[in-house]
Design a protein around this nucleic acid. Structure first.
Lengths: 146, 146
DNA sequence: CTATTCTTAACTGGATTAGTAAGGAATGGC
DNA sequence: GCCATTCCTTACTAATCCAGTTAAGAATAG
């Protein structure tokens, strides 16, 4: 249904890996690639765009690598997908009219079913964080305990 | 977000056209193409797959054409998209594990956010009919009046 | 018999996808 | 300062998908 291409899939896997393994330290693309079975050079490309989007910090040189730039608990999946180049809900209905400003006389509530469906999906993505996708109780999660 | 290609878009427009214009009569692909500004030969291809899916009836010869094979009020949009070759919610999560049978120990409720999002979208599509997409109160809608 | 219309399959140019390859720039260790 | 390491950026490529076009064939009505 969604167009989850390998770029998107690898990007998500890499972020999950960083959330688990790069807690306050830099992890190389090579390491991530091996753990998640991703072609290393391709992963470099994908991580670069995550850096440009501000989700990840990259540092060069020996002891360089990548680290999450934001907390996995505040990073919502819609932001991740946007950073990976996936497109959000379409702005135009099947009549090619801008959904926001549409004033077609015959327009009904449900006329733009696909757009509404996309928004329903978006709602889920906005309310899910990277931490939700990580194995077990996240190690970066603040735990309040007596 | 969804991959709404021209095949999908044209298919939906054609079905809307049939719902409005082919009430108990056959309408040629040519007519539909002109009204909806669709390349006629391409539309033929698309209508053929709607026929194979059983949503539309086609008849050849002069006075032939296409006609809806089901009521627009019972034809849900998910069926339409399926008939047009769009893929439904993906069966595999980003770990490439079948969602239905996944027993990964670390799996959490939200682990498969994209699948859940797709299902939320699906819910909307299942509860919307072709009639909902048609202009005005549908002419095929049974009206009970005193 | 013939014009019309659907039906089916093969084909094509362009765009996208999934990577690969290579050169350059920053960083840390010596 | 030098060098190995690692990220960063751009260019390239083979394969696939998309948006149609073309053409031959089959059914139908008159």
């Amino acid at each position: 249904m969604f167009n989850v291409n390998s770029r998107t899939r690898y990007g998500l896997l890499a972020l999950i890996d960083l959330a688990v393994n790069s807690v306050h330290k830099f992890v190389t693309a090579q390491d991530v690639a091996e753990r998640k079975h991703i072609p290393p050079k391709f992963l470099g490309q994908i991580l670069a765009s995550l850096v440009q989007a501000g989700l990840v910090e990259g540092r060069r040189g020996s002891s360089g690598g990548y680290m999450l730039a934001v907390s996995p608990h505040t990073l919502t999946i819609d932001r991740v997908l946007a950073a990976l180049g996936a497109e959000g809900p379409s702005q135009r209905c099947i009549y090619d009219v801008d959904r926001a400003t549409c004033t077609l006389p015959y327009r009904q509530d449900k006329c733009d079913a696909i757009g509404i469906a996309e928004e329903a999906a978006m709602k889920v993505l906005v309310s899910t964080t990277l931490a939700d996708l990580c194995p077990g109780p996240s190690t970066t999660e603040p735990v309040y305990q007596i």
